[in-house]
């Protein structure tokens, strides 16, 4: 099976495609494919030319840390839970997330997610829940990986300078509903950096590996019913 990877040696350098022949086990995930290409033997491209090892990020390898987010056959996904058996076509095309600066190959700098939350100081501080809390939704929202897949697919998210995307909206919801004294302040921030520009394509919900119902967060923040 052919595997094409969009590579980039350094943050500023030009990206280029490189193609590999994968002859490893067919039950592997894309993370497994990358590992296999890197370390099963010397790494060579389809022409037999030696090349450098493919850079990518991982930690838990079971879909709960968000490290290995990338674009696989045009769809943003976690490499560790995308399996060859579920991919269609004769080739796997892998590229880094496109909305974030590339550090090296498939490793991107997603610190804008954290920077935006920090800049807006989205933090609970003190647990003072509103009278009617939706515990199940709080639990789901707090599982956000900050993987950035929702931002990658969002038609309104460009580079995170003004519109901060679904990960931001969900954290805003968590703060506003777990500390009622912050509700007003957080709703203002939310409106500024999310509410006023969200076109409700909801692609973020479809792609989210944690299946977070961002629409529920949005609806409650918009209506102020937390």
């Amino acid at each position: 099976m052919r595997v094409s990877v969009l590579r980039q040696q350094h943050p500023g350098s030009d990206p280029y495609w490189e193609t590999f022949e994968y002859d490893g086990p067919d039950h592997n995930s894309v993370a497994g494919v990358l590992d296999y290409l890197n370390y099963h033997d010397d790494i060579v491209d389809t022409e037999g030319r030696r090349t450098t090892r493919i850079g990518w990020e991982c930690s838990c390898l079971q879909g709960i840390c968000g490290a290995c987010a990338m674009v696989i056959n045009g769809r943003p996904a976690l490499a560790c839970e995308t399996f060859i058996r579920d991919l269609k076509g004769p080739e796997i095309r892998i590229q880094p997330l496109r909305k974030f600066p590339v550090i090296h190959d498939l490793v991107t700098d997603r610190s804008s997610i954290h920077e935006n939350l920090k800049q807006a100081n989205v933090s609970i501080g003190e647990y003072r829940p509103s009278a009617k809390t939706d515990h199940a939704h709080h639990y789901a929202v707090a599982k956000c990986l900050k993987c950035g897949l929702c931002l990658e697919v969002c038609p309104n998210y460009v580079n995170g300078r003004t519109f901060f995307g679904a990960a931001f909206a969900n954290d805003c919801y968590l703060v506003a509903s777990r500390n009622r004294s912050k509700t007003a302040e957080i709703r203002t921030l939310y409106a500024e950096h999310f509410g006023k520009d969200c076109s409700k394509s909801l692609s973020c919900m479809e792609i989210c590996p944690m299946k977070i119902q961002t629409l529920a967060s949005i609806a409650r923040l918009n209506r102020g019913k937390l």
């Binding site: 939350l117 609970i124 501080g125 707090a142 599982k143």
Partner: peptide, 23 residues
Amino acid sequence: YCGASTGKQIVSALVMEVRRYEA
């Protein structure tokens, strides 16, 4: 416990608390 994700839920809360002091 926090459902089946105790560590993750504690990390999420601490990340916010760290963020407060980052600000």
